[in-house]
């Protein structure tokens, strides 16, 4: 039972990040390999934002923890979104304009991730930073299961984000435009839809939620380091692929599924096996069902 709750919590992180992969892939058919590192940058931004409001740098008086959290959520999302959009503008868009092979964009994405990761490492050093406690941890005891308020909040945020994104993509005009671009990127501008704006919006959404995940991850495991994004990013990607990349519900379900699998593995094997098994599952699923559990194959026409 305790395991189940932990699984839900990990699943929430994976889901939040996987949603970002999924949004960008759904629109551009591009795997944004830098997404895991955007998550990491999000955690760092959250760290500095919180330190600022807590008065650690001196020029803003300290505020109570709950207020800091309330301010940090939108600010982190916004600043992380700026990072994501910058990547899009500087690295991806010029390539898209030139109409080059998609492979080049994928390589660029992967390299941008490495630059973020190592740039951060080079600038801030390898030392881990411990995240300040914003809310006092409250522990509830329900039927012998330990529940903390942060855990509940994380799970709640993940579910809320999923519902919000699902609403945006299926019910709003801009969501419709996003889906249109993924069907035919060349016809969309001809129909008078500002494709670039829609793409930027997609990156804002995806990176914003990565930033949110970064903030909550940092609150739960109050240590951040430059390499935290790489592995969790890959795993969130596994989640997105397992669910069928491009399908929002798939990414959400895949995230929780991966959370469960990992917690179960740790329950029965040494914890060093966790990544090994997670990656093996990915390999297996992709070999058997290349489009993931919820994905639909695109038919090639000849």
């Amino acid at each position: 039972m305790q395991n189940l709750l932990n699984a839900l919590q990990w699943g929430s992180f994976y889901s939040l990040i996987a949603l970002g992969y999924c949004l960008v892939y759904g629109v551009l058919l591009l795997i944004n390999f830098a997404h895991g590192d955007i998550f990491m940058v999000g955690a760092y931004i959250a760290f500095y934002v919180c330190m600022l409001f807590l008065g650690k740098f001196g020029f803003i008086p300290g505020m109570p923890g709950w207020l800091v959290l309330a301010l940090a959520v939108p600010l982190t999302m916004l600043l992380t979104a700026v990072v994501g959009v910058t990547l899009e503008r500087v690295a991806y868009r010029p390539l898209r304009r030139k109409g080059v092979n998609r492979l080049y964009v994928v390589i660029t994405a992967l390299m941008c991730g490495l630059i973020l990761e190592n740039g951060n490492l080079a600038l801030l050093g390898a030392s881990r930073k411990s995240f300040p406690t914003l809310l006092p941890t409250k522990v509830f005891d329900v039927f012998g299961v330990t529940v903390t308020n942060i855990k509940l909040m994380v799970i709640g945020v993940a579910i809320f984000s999923f519902l919000l994104l699902h609403f945006i993509v299926t019910r709003t005009k801009i969501g419709m435009a996003m889906r249109a671009i993924s069907y035919d990127r060349f016809a969309v501008p001809l129909m008078g839809i500002p494709a670039d704006t829609v793409i930027v919006f997609t990156f804002v959404l995806g990176s914003g939620f990565a930033g949110l995940a970064g903030l909550f991850f940092a609150m739960t495991y109050p240590v951040i380091d430059p390499y935290m994004g790489a592995l969790i990013g890959w795993k969130a990607f596994i989640a997105a692929v397992v669910g069928g990349i491009g399908s929002i519900a798939g990414a959400f379900a895949g995230g929780f599924l991966l959370g469960f699998v990992e917690i179960m593995v740790v329950a029965f094997f040494p914890s060093t096996f966790r990544d090994l098994i997670a990656f093996s599952i990915l390999l297996l699923i992709l070999s058997i069902r290349p489009t993931g559990l919820f994905g639909v194959a695109r038919r090639t026409k000849i």
Partner: peptide, 19 residues
């Protein structure tokens, strides 16, 4: 599979070996 998906598979394979 090919393209992006295969890229993931290669990364996964490398991780599996290392792990």
């Amino acid at each position: 599979t090919r393209g992006d998906y295969l890229a993931i598979i290669t990364i996964a394979a490398a991780y599996i070996v290392k792990s």
